[in-house]
């Protein structure tokens, strides 16, 4: 065969870090968190994660092939949306509602804007915000973790028939015979009962919450791994957690009886998952070096403000969505300084 010469434009080498490599690694870093959730909540959690992810993938496939983008599943971004979305839902969330959440996340959160890179809001949070509005009571009802029958029986609500109200779980919970189960998340217990958990409770997962809220330390470890491999921008979680920590600490110092320890604020709710895996969504966060700090601080501050002064128990989702909306503006206002330009 006659040798042929290839012509390419410089540069002729590449870092090797491509979109699918980044996305695949993020998926990989989410798997331990999924595994922990399944360990806590059993086959119901597994079914929810698989169902929501499948819903996202099918929706992505449907729209990408119809909008001329080809098969975009290979970039792995839809899988991230699916897994993240599942981790923000109660593990006993009805599967059919999970399908709805996944469809909305991709269809309204992503495909509507033209697919990966063009979405202004984090697709997983768009899906989550939709089901929060559509099924407000179901999304706030939890079953206890470590129920003995969790690997043999589905939670009744998981298998709720499509378009039906979530099935009643009280018999299943009673069967588990767990003492003093309240069914409330740590943030709700703090808000309404002024009860705080210890840091150790969050590490072992005995608290009741959506999968992504029960394993703050594990999430942190996965985030550190991704940051070290340069697959996520470490500045954003540092800004989010740092600003939340400082604000919570200031409140705690001012009124210790009213406001919890700063470490509770960091470990409870969706702050850790949000800071590490959602705020860092590249398409919806600023690109400028100064901008990412402002954006992260905005998320941390708004999260704490909503938790302390809002009607909701948790504010991370809205904090990130608000910051997403602000990020083009932040970018515009924080253009990098050109080399050799006179300081502004």
């Amino acid at each position: 065969m006659k040798p042929t010469i290839e012509l390419r434009a410089a540069p002729h080498v590449h870092s090797g870090i491509s979109v699918p490599v980044i996305m695949r690694n993020v998926v990989g870093a989410l798997l331990p968190i999924c595994a922990f959730s399944v360990w806590q909540y059993g086959i119901s959690a597994a079914a929810l994660i698989l169902t929501v992810t499948a819903s996202c993938l099918l929706t992505e496939r449907f729209f990408s092939s119809r909008t001329g983008l080809g098969n975009t599943l290979a970039d792995w971004s839809a899988a991230i949306t699916g897994i993240l979305l599942a981790l923000t839902l109660p593990p006993n969330f009805p599967l059919w509602m999970g399908v709805v959440a996944g469809f909305i996340a991709i269809a309204l959160g992503k495909s509507l804007f033209g697919g990966m890179g063009f979405n202004p809001f984090n697709p997983a949070l768009v899906g989550r915000a939709f089901v929060q509005g559509a099924f407000p009571s179901t999304i706030a009802s939890f079953v206890p973790s470590y129920a003995p029958q969790r690997f043999t029986e589905f939670v009744p609500s998981t298998l709720t028939a499509p378009l039906m109200q979530a099935a009643d779980n009280s018999a299943w919970i009673g069967h588990a015979a767990i003492d003093a189960f309240t069914g409330a998340t740590p943030l709700a217990r703090w808000k309404f009962e002024n009860f705080t958990y210890s840091a150790g409770d969050f590490m072992t997962g005995v608290v009741t919450a959506s999968a992504g809220e029960t394993s703050a330390i594990l999430i942190l470890a996965c985030g550190v791994y991704l940051a070290m491999r340069r697959y996520l921008d470490w500045r954003i979680p540092v800004a989010v957690l740092g600003s939340a920590l400082i604000l919570a600490w200031a409140f705690h110092l001012a009124v210790p009886a009213r406001y919890p320890e700063p470490v509770f604020v960091l470990l409870s709710g969706g702050l850790m998952l949000g800071a590490i895996f959602m705020a860092t969504d590249m398409a919806t966060s600023p690109v400028t070096p100064v901008g990412v700090w402002i954006y992260g601080a905005l998320i941390g501050i708004v999260s704490v403000v909503i938790r302390y002064f809002g009607g909701l128990t948790e504010g991370v989702m809205y904090a990130i969505l608000i910051a997403n909306a602000a990020s083009p503006l932040i970018d515009q206002m924080t253009q990098p300084k050109v080399f050799g330009a006179r300081s502004r």
């Binding site: 002729h12 491509s18 990966m116 890179g117 921008d233 400028t288 080399f339």
Partner: peptide, 24 residues
């Protein structure tokens, strides 16, 4: 590591901004 023929939409990761020596 030769750049593949394939490319993806800009995902606004900012990697280019962190690379540009001229601060563009």
């Amino acid at each position: 590591h030769a750049p593949a023929a394939k490319n993806w939409p800009c995902i606004h990761c900012g990697a280019c901004i962190d690379a540009c020596p001229m601060g563009l």
